[in-house]
Design a protein around this nucleic acid. Structure first.
Length: 243
DNA sequence: GAAAATGTTATCAT
DNA sequence: TATGATAACATTTT
């Protein structure tokens, strides 16, 4: 699940704010007891981290590839990683998630300016971080959560097509204007993703991801597992220039 | 029904 | 010890 999907989730679960936990359970190896009696102070996100803030502790929920959740219902025959029940009778279940406790204040723990979906997103800062990593592939750079928190593999593919850059280009080889474009699109496309996903029209708007043909020049696309993490990358050799 | 995938972290090898 | 590669995890879609 990528950053924009987490923001949608945050909106869906914002009703939990202010509610008091009466039961906490699940497969996650965290101290459930300390949550009981606690009120939800806030529901936040940082990149792909879904955050439930309590007094003195916050829960960091990561959905990885297969995570899911249910509000006021359960998934038949499955044990949640985390289940929270509230005093008004509502409950939320998170499945196949990584759940961790964060002891420190969230504002100390997270740099919100690195989150592409945050209103504190700082493009200039991202650009400065990239400048220090000239040997990095652009694809790997986009997947770096320290620089572009929230960007995932789909977003990576779409951004690179939008700016016509080959996924294996080196950051240091990009002309300054392209680097600026890269940073700008990380933010812009993430918001397009958010709007389309909310309208259930996300796939319809994919230009290159999973596509057989380039929508621009009609040449067959290439599919290759690229970069440090060997994630699948669709691209057009004609339109996306290797720098 | 096998294979692959919107991802990260732990562990192993060098 | 530090770095890099590989495995582990687990569910839905193709």
């Amino acid at each position: 699940m990528e950053g924009p999907s987490l923001v949608i989730l945050k909106e869906e679960l914002k009703s939990l704010k202010g509610k008091r936990v009466i039961d906490a359970a699940g497969l996650a190896k965290i101290d459930m007891d300390r949550l009981i009696g606690q009120k939800v102070k806030s529901i936040r996100t940082w990149g792909k981290h879904f955050l439930i803030e309590f007094k003195g502790v916050s829960l960091r929920i990561h959905f990885l590839m297969f995570g899911s959740y249910r509000l006021n219902e359960t998934k038949e025959g499955r044990k949640p990683s985390l289940r929270l029940k509230f005093e008004d009778g509502s409950e939320v279940n998170f499945y196949t998630c990584s759940v961790k406790e964060i002891e420190s204040a969230l504002d100390d723990h997270y740099d919100w300016s690195a989150d592409v979906m945050s209103d504190q997103w700082n493009a200039a800062k991202a650009r400065r971080k990239l400048k220090k990593l000239p040997d990095l592939n652009v694809g790997d750079a986009l997947l770096s959560q320290e620089i572009f928190a929230g960007v995932g593999n789909i977003i990576k593919n779409e951004i690179l097509f939008r700016i016509y850059v080959h996924p294996e280009s080196k950051i240091g080889h990009l002309p300054p204007r392209k680097l600026t474009e890269l940073v700008a699109e990380a933010h812009n496309y993430s918001f397009d993703f958010y709007r389309w996903k909310k309208a259930f029209q996300l796939k319809k708007h994919w230009l290159i991801y999973t596509k057989k043909k380039c929508p621009r020049c009609k040449v067959p696309t290439l599919k290759k597992h690229t970069g440090l993490t060997k994630r699948r990358t669709f691209y057009c050799e004609q339109c996306q220039r290797l720098y």
